[in-house]
Design a protein around this nucleic acid. Structure first.
Lengths: 111, 111
DNA sequence: CCTATCAATAACCATATGGTTATGATTCGC
DNA sequence: GCGAATCATAACCATATGGTTATTGATAGG
């Protein structure tokens, strides 16, 4: 349980720490599978940078790539957020009954 | 709603990206309020570094400090995780019914 | 084929970041 | 009051990181 917190892949936290990278991830979530080109056209950074960011996201298993011809399509992978959810679960369990505010927040997640 | 994703404070994501900082935060969660000294004794880094990390966590509103004499006690603030929860909520809403795995994970958060 | 397009790599740069030791500012115990 | 303890800041260093502009390696199209 507690050991879980240590085994959480750093990669996920590090990946989501950069706003540009989050923006790319959000774009993939909202607009679905897209090529590097399409993503580049919608960010303010260069194509190589987009490729780099996608590489980081891929390493963290937050996105999945699908090469097709000379294009490479990327899509968000929901399972990639599992480590984050597990990490939150730990705090929820620990704080249960102690801090009502967090409890409320997590309850509202279930609306 | 979608705008929420942009207004999420970077500070929280950036704070949690560093493993040493997460370790300090986890220590505060598990063991409760502690002085800088106590925290320093339980990490492998120097006292100034612990102070710096605590400064970052404090800026992200993940911890609260309480000076007392020459000691300064720090404790974790549950509300500080709210931005993270909101961010997750967005993905839950977006993926609801689409990706069962994430749905299951988030449902299990409510046990 | 020859060229244009696409994505990844290389080479490079500036700055942010995590770490250190030294110093300062308070406060406590004697 | 004086020395020791506690924490923050300063000064500094090495490396990681986000960014750029070439360049390369494929593939698609005329």
């Amino acid at each position: 349980m507690i050991r879980n917190m240590r085994t959480v892949p750093d990669a996920v936290f590090k990946s989501l720490a950069d706003p540009t990278r989050r923006a790319i991830f959000e774009r993939l979530v909202c607009d679905g599978e897209q090529t590097v080109r399409a993503l580049t056209d919608r960010t303010h950074v260069s194509q190589p940078m987009v490729s780099k960011h996608l590489g980081v996201l891929k390493h963290a298993r937050l996105v999945i790539d699908r090469p097709d011809g000379r294009s490479v399509f990327y899509r968000a992978d929901p399972q990639g957020l599992a480590p984050l959810v597990d990490w939150m679960k730990f705090y929820r369990a620990f704080w249960a009954g102690k801090f009502d505010q967090l409890e409320d927040l997590l309850n509202r997640m279930d609306q």
